[in-house]
Design a protein around this nucleic acid. Structure first.
Lengths: 233, 233
DNA sequence: GTAGCGCGGATCGCTCAACAAATCACCCGT
DNA sequence: ACGGGTGATTTGTTGAGCGATCCGCGCTAC
């Protein structure tokens, strides 16, 4: 980095840019595919043919395999030797495991009050209002993502990049199971009021009670999801 | 799965097997490379030439690239577009971030007393004795891995596979920084007595005090590491 | 009928060779 | 010393190819 400017004016110009849209082809493929997976556009369990997908995305088989390897590492795909890659199918155990881990992360983040910043707290509030307006517009998919933002913001209270990363990955993984939750309204809507309560508790400084509430909330959500899950299997 | 056997006799035959040594070539490469990286045999910052490594490990460039992608995803390598992959160089911030996260995970696991099993607790004790005998034999590298096993066992108290996975990954990542800690004795030895104390506290059922002790311990270790870190840079 | 067997056909795992594009190292003129 | 051009090196990606493995199907034997 050449130190030509006293203040880094140039850096500011590019600061708010939406990331160069994934430079490499493989990463672009990963992003697209990940989008499909967490939106449930490909049913869990289906095999992803290398040839077919390579053709569909106009990339070589080699590049596609790089992408597959990454997504398998993110646990969105399963790689079975000499058989191919499949969209991950979550079991009921996976769901409880994910929720258990989430509970640990989120309550832990909540407990680190000395790290909480005003910026993070306002992100929580933002996610809540996002959810409220999505509900008002009866945009249930939007309500789902708002809910995700809420929990990411909670985890963000710890101010730890690594925690944020694992949290997003957990949520992505969890989304694989959302296709069994139909209609989405029934799943997300009841928790909106919980989000409001928790947000207010945090703002009022009573993180203890917020954590208790959150824990109960997550237990309930987990139980509901497991129930819906075992009903279909 | 064909249901030929009433009791699954066959499964037992293969139960204790040391995993088929990574079936695919790419995974084998990943394992070997990961071994090198966490042992510090390749200095952080060095570029890993595709051609050279492909030749050295007798695999094609394409397969090697798959391996590189995975290791980059594990944050052991850094991939820079059109420049190549480099062994990750941790910053002091990384170290504190890792320790902060570890603290959250380990104390969280410790707090979930209702999930603690006797099997897990004995694993902790095992790691402690492993460390004691390593210290007696003046095997400082062995003491390091014993210490790792200790913390993995603590995290294992939560009984959550995902937590275990992120914990191992964190420890692997942290190991990238161990090469600055020379001699290893001075870094690991002081903490052996702490391990003993914490183990006893857990066995006596006083997880509260164990958590406090652990937290202080990790803070100290982090500070020491950061100090050693900034001394070299 | 059904359990075992063998035989393609499809797909994966991996390699090799090639080429465009980007980066790097070096030299040059100023 | 500094900016700029130029060729060498390395990466990004592709395409073809081949052995290995798995799957489905039909055959046979009991």
């Amino acid at each position: 980095m050449t130190q030509t400017h006293g203040l880094d004016v140039v850096a500011d110009l590019f600061a708010g840019r939406p990331a160069p849209v994934a430079a490499s082809t493989a990463e672009r493929v990963v992003d697209v595919l990940r989008g499909y997976l967490i939106e449930g556009r490909i049913v869990p369990g289906t095999r992803l043919s290398e040839e077919a997908f390579a053709a569909a995305m106009s990339v070589s088989r080699n590049t596609l395999r790089e992408a597959f390897r990454i997504l398998a590492h993110e646990k969105l795909l399963v790689h079975e030797m000499n058989r191919g890659v499949f969209v991950r199918e979550l079991t009921a155990d996976d769901v409880t495991s994910i929720y258990q881990f989430r509970t640990m992360l989120e309550t832990s983040a909540l407990a680190q009050t000395e790290r909480h910043t005003q910026a993070q707290k306002s992100k929580i509030r933002l996610a809540v209002t996002e959810g409220l307006s999505a509900a008002e517009a009866e945009d249930w998919r939007g309500l789902g993502t708002a809910n995700m933002h809420f929990h990411l913001a909670i985890a963000g209270l710890a101010g730890n990049r690594r925690l944020d990363a694992t949290m997003s990955q957990l949520l992505a993984e969890q989304r694989l199971a959302f296709h069994v939750m139909t209609p989405l309204k029934d799943f997300h809507d009841p928790y909106l009021t919980d989000n409001v309560t928790i947000c207010e508790l945090i703002e009022s400084g009573d993180v203890e009670e917020a954590a208790r509430h959150l824990r109960a909330y997550l237990d309930r959500a987990c139980a509901q999801m497991v129930r819906a899950f075992e009903a279909t299997s």
